[in-house]
């Protein structure tokens, strides 16, 4: 990723120097191995700190909505699709954006490597041959990036940016044997009770910190339904029906809009794969209405429109 980083710095410095933009949204080195937090570069010195690693899991589109003025953003394939949605939903204006598309080779969560290594990690080095070398406590371990990358990245077919003003690297080739919905099919194949148990277990350790919602570019309601007090739609405690209500409703609110960027999963302190909900809805939108989120700003998302000819198989 070294070559990406160099190019990213170069682009950011140029855009700030020639005043194309006031600020550049990207990532910088964090204080822990494999931490790459979002960063807003406003000066050339700031831009020197920008980097690109395999741990840029956060979706930067999430930061655009609070911003006024001209901004440049480094965007992976999924970030670009979220930007497309934001434009379509009137949250940002295309002319305020300078999008630098970053063809994506997949992201790896810190949590995954920490779990696999199961020891204190001093250093994680990414080699150009697609491996991650982890050192700590006198041990060394090598991981194939393809094996340890996020599930959403493994099944992603939109790795290349769909909307951009310039590219930070050459487009990547997408393997043509990706089984996009294998994980969903596995759950679909379960019986009703088993399926319920699956989802119950999935969220059993949820602490309702809402990091999943807050990291999600699609979740931008000024007051989320879980925070409403009058009326109070859902209890605020740690009981299972309330936790489940939060997850199921949130998933439906993102239906047809979720880009499977995985920022929700990557942000969860409890390592919960709440994508299991949203991925199913993504599959349904594709199956029923041939709809994929984030590819165009001109058509309303699947669940926002009704056409007389729409299939009704989903009405149960």
């Amino acid at each position: 990723m070294q070559s990406y980083s160099e190019k990213i710095k170069e682009i950011a410095i140029r855009l700030l120097k020639d005043e194309t933009v006031e600020v550049v949204f990207g990532f910088r080195e964090g204080t822990l191995p494999m931490a790459s937090p979002p960063f807003a570069a406003k000066t050339v010195e700031d831009a020197e700190q920008l980097t690109w690693t395999s741990h840029c899991c956060i979706n930067l589109a999430n930061y655009l909505m609070d911003h006024k003025g001209k901004v440049a953003i480094f965007a992976k394939g999924c970030d670009c699709r979220s930007i497309v949605n934001h434009i379509g939903e009137g949250k940002v204006k295309r002319e305020d954006l300078h999008i630098i598309g970053v063809p994506c080779k997949g992201m790896v969560e810190r949590h995954t490597i920490c779990t696999l290594f199961d020891d204190e990690i001093d250093e994680a080095v990414e080699e150009d041959d697609g491996t991650i070398l982890v050192r700590g406590n006198g041990r060394e371990e090598k991981y194939q990036k393809a094996d340890v990358m996020r599930q959403c990245c493994k099944v992603c077919v939109h790795r290349n940016p769909g909307i951009y003003d310039e590219l930070a690297a050459e487009l990547v080739t997408i393997p043509d044997d990706i089984k996009r919905y294998r994980e969903v099919e596995e759950v679909e194949e379960l019986g009703v009770d088993e399926r319920w148990n699956f989802f119950e277990n999935l969220v059993s350790t949820c602490i309702r910190c809402y990091a999943c919602r807050d990291a999600c570019p699609t979740c931008y309601c000024p007051t989320c339904f879980v925070d409403e007090a009058q009326p109070q739609w859902v209890g605020k405690g740690d009981e299972e029906p309330d936790i489940m209500t939060f997850h199921i409703l949130r998933a439906f609110h993102t239906a047809g809009r979720c880009t499977d960027c995985g920022a929700c999963v990557s942000s969860c302190p409890m390592g919960i794969n709440m994508r299991a909900f949203t991925k199913k809805l993504e599959k349904d939108c594709l199956d029923l209405w041939d709809w994929e989120s984030g590819l165009t700003s001109d058509v309303r998302p699947a669940l926002e429109t009704y056409q007389p000819g729409d299939p009704e198989d989903n009405f149960k």
């Binding site: 979002p38 910190c209 990091a211 919602r213 807050d214 942000s267 302190p269």
Partner: peptide, 13 residues
């Protein structure tokens, strides 16, 4: 504060 998501994780843990 720029990157903060305003999730409550830091305070809950």
């Amino acid at each position: 504060s720029f990157p903060c998501l305003n999730c409550g994780t830091c305070t809950y843990v």
